[in-house]
């Protein structure tokens, strides 16, 4: 039984991605010895944690067949909100909780647009993204709001051993949500809704309820990610976080989460994130010009999708004679 599972895993997508990560890491290490230095690995873990945290909420939504393209700007505005709240002299745990509550409200707005008014999540959240971006500019007056609460800094820039605090929190979220998706009835309902909405409905599950919970969840996690980022850079700013949701989505899809819902898991998304960030970090390590880096990041994504495409075709062909 265990042997079968190991075999299945080795033939699976996650194993393939891990192999690619090893190859990428080996190449960059040969090019620049300091790529594998503790300092660089810490930097890598720190850079993963922002889009990684967003990917937890977004990954669940993607599996359920939805998306929250506003999660980046939700994080952005949350960073400013937490900075403003801390500016009033409020203790940081209270400020953080209020910010997460604010994130829940933003998630509720998405849930209302998608489930009550019936808009497509893709369009509705693009719209809200723009609204939040504008609001972020308004409440920050277009400039960064600095944070002077020293204790709060630790959430963003503390560390245990070589593990930065944001990375630990992200990893914990990944672990908890992976367990929820795999072992709870709610988690299985998320897959059911993403895999076949009408089957879910006819089996007595409410897809609207499930996706509403996930939208609120994504709003809360995005707000948390934005607050942690603000703690790391000691300020909330109208240009923070924005855009990280695209990395999160790309990593999730790369890791096997279907964009149309119903399949994949957060484990894959996590490995996808590591790959994207390890590659981006490596481009820095070999000193590639910044403009080229942007192009190269796109190329690796497309290359990974191509590998996946041919792999999938092989699998479909292998299945054909049976049916």
């Amino acid at each position: 039984m265990v042997g079968v599972k190991v075999g299945k895993f080795l033939r699976g997508k996650i194993a393939a991605l891990l192999a690619v990560i090893l190859v990428v890491a080996a190449i960059f290490t040969i090019a620049n010895k300091s790529y594998m230095s503790p300092k660089n690995i810490m930097a890598l873990m720190t850079s993963v944690s922002l889009s990684g945290t967003l990917a937890v909420g977004l990954g669940c939504l993607l599996i359920s067949g939805h998306v929250d393209l506003a999660s980046g700007t939700e994080g952005c505005i949350a960073g400013i909100v937490v900075a403003l709240l801390l500016g009033t002299g409020m203790p940081w745990p209270v400020a953080l909780l209020l910010t997460i509550a604010f994130g829940c409200v933003m998630g509720l707005v998405n849930a209302f647009l998608v489930n009550t008014l019936g808009f497509m999540a893709f369009i509705a959240t693009i719209g809200m993204s723009s609204v939040y971006k504008g609001l972020a500019l308004v409440i920050s007056n277009g400039s960064n709001v600095s944070i002077s609460n020293q204790a709060f800094y630790d959430i963003g820039s503390g560390s245990i051993g070589i593990f930065p605090a944001p990375f630990i929190m992200m990893a914990a979220l990944f672990a908890v949500y992976t367990l929820i998706l795999k072992f709870t009835k709610f988690g299985r309902a998320v897959y059911l809704c993403g895999g076949n909405v009408s089957a879910a409905r006819l089996a007595g599950v409410s897809p609207k309820r499930v996706s509403s919970i996930l939208f609120v969840n994504s709003g809360a996690i995005s707000a948390f990610a934005g607050a942690v980022f603000a703690a790391r850079v000691h300020m909330g700013g109208p240009n923070n976080v924005f855009g990280a949701e695209m990395d999160a989505i790309a990593a999730s899809v790369l890791g096997g989460v279907s964009f149309t819902g119903g399949s994949g898991g957060l484990g894959g998304a996590f490995v996808g994130l590591i790959l994207i960030n390890a590659f981006n970090n490596g481009l820095n390590a070999i000193g590639l010009q910044a403009y080229w880096q942007t192009a190269a990041q796109g190329v690796i994504l497309i290359a990974a999708l191509l590998v996946d495409y041919f792999g999938e075709r092989g699998r479909v062909r292998a299945l054909k004679p049976a049916s």
Binding site: R188, A199, A203
Partner: peptide, 15 residues
């Protein structure tokens, strides 16, 4: 009304 990616067991007990 089935989820193709879900197992036989999960489909039978869906919901």
């Amino acid at each position: 009304q089935l989820v193709p990616t879900g197992s036989v067991a999960e489909n039978i007990f869906a919901g």
